[in-house]
């Protein structure tokens, strides 16, 4: 084998890899938006359907991502806001917020009716791999019903902490998780209201 052969091999392999890599990058860019849409549609939409009603647009395409603070590592925390409209008029916004539960974070999606700013409904986000901890307490309407129709600046803590929510007996940790998630969500809403509605 001559040096020429070796260089030839290296060049060919490098060029082929580069071209393939470049092609893949293009495909990835071209499909990224659609993939994200599909993921949200299949993972988040079932929960959105539960909390939004009476709309005639597609909230999954009418969405916006805003930055809501930074986490401990200094990375931006992103929250995706979904808009439900009827006849072109905004009737509600929905987004997901997290509270800590018994076995990790509990994701809760909540909708806020517009323009009167009352909480519409809450639901646990579906996760195809493991059922979320929040899902268990949210399956019964006992906890959910306590939230519907409350104004955004109500105190959403548990009543043991001076709030308006009664914990579900036997699932106190999960109830705390859900109520923290809602409380966090309301904080985000109040703080970034101009971004959300703008």
């Amino acid at each position: 084998m001559t040096v020429r052969d070796i260089i030839n091999m290296i060049v060919v392999l490098t060029v082929v890899s580069l071209v393939c890599g470049g092609g893949l990058a293009m495909v990835k860019m071209a499909t990224a938006e659609q993939v994200e849409y599909q993921k949200i549609k299949n993972v988040k939409e079932p929960a959105l359907k539960k909390i939004l009603s009476d709309y005639d647009n597609d909230p999954v395409s009418d969405r916006k991502t805003i930055i809501t603070g930074k986490d401990s590592k200094g990375k931006d925390i992103k929250t995706t806001i979904f808009y439900a409209k009827k006849g072109g008029k905004l009737i509600a916004v929905a987004f997901e917020a997290y509270g800590s539960g018994y076995g990790g974070p509990i994701g809760v999606v909540m909708s806020i009716n517009q323009p009167d700013e009352v909480l519409g409904a809450i639901a646990a986000t579906t996760n195809s791999e493991t059922p979320s901890v929040g899902g268990i307490v949210m399956a019964s309407s006992e906890l959910r019903d306590q939230y519907a129709g409350k104004p955004v600046d109500a105190n959403f803590g548990l009543n043991s902490a001076g709030g308006i929510i009664n914990a579900i007996s036997g699932a106190t940790m999960s109830s705390i998780g859900v109520s923290t998630a809602v409380k966090n969500g309301m904080e985000i809403y109040k703080k970034y209201k101009s971004d959300i509605l703008g």
Partner: peptide, 23 residues
């Protein structure tokens, strides 16, 4: 090695397309 690079590229294209349009 070259064959595998080419095949892998084609497969990832399939995977991304399927993820985007046939979730």
């Amino acid at each position: 090695a070259v064959f595998i690079v080419i095949i892998a590229t084609a497969v990832i294209i399939v995977e991304l397309t399927m993820q985007a349009y046939f979730y």
